[in-house]
């Protein structure tokens, strides 16, 4: 605790090291990323609600949503949500695997963290390439 009382005349009592004192490891970064993407996806649910609500309200609100989504910033944000979804989904599957008792040793946990990071970028990149090359929109 930061407000640990220090007795005068004694050297500072040792504090337990926290986040910034550890050497970063893939598992540690993937754990933090899992949290951040989870919270970020929560914000994404508001964007999803906005998109659905705009569609229900009529062509003009829907066109407004699309005109914002198509801007470079809008595309970056949408790519961010796509990445967050794919990361959280992949890391979530690994959490379930861990819960079953597999993959706990540091070597495989670190290796799988790197695999998940790599795949988490490849999946949304693939989706965006498909969309930009006209291979999306198959429900149109």
């Amino acid at each position: 605790m930061a407000d640990n009382p220090q007795r005068p005349g004694h050297r500072p009592r040792p504090l337990s090291p926290h986040l910034m004192h550890y050497r970063p490891t893939p598992t540690m970064i993937s754990s933090i990323t899992h949290r951040i993407t989870g919270v970020g996806l929560g914000l994404g649910m508001a964007v999803l609600a906005w998109w659905l609500f705009a569609a229900a309200r009529g062509p003009e609100p829907f066109a407004l949503f699309l005109s914002l989504a198509i801007t470079p910033l809008g595309q970056v944000i949408l790519f961010g949500f796509a990445w967050a979804l794919s990361y959280h989904l992949l890391a979530g599957i690994r959490h379930l695997v861990w819960d079953l008792g597999y993959g706990f040793d540091p070597r495989s946990a670190n290796r799988w963290s790197l695999v998940i990071f790599t795949l988490s970028f490849l999946a949304p990149a693939g989706l965006f390439v498909l969309a930009y090359t006209g291979n999306g929109g198959y429900y149109l």
Partner: peptide
């Protein structure tokens, strides 16, 4: 994800 990709292009 598959559904959103299928709707990409965004016809109302």
């Amino acid at each position: 994800a598959v559904s959103i990709l299928g709707l990409a292009g965004g016809h109302y």
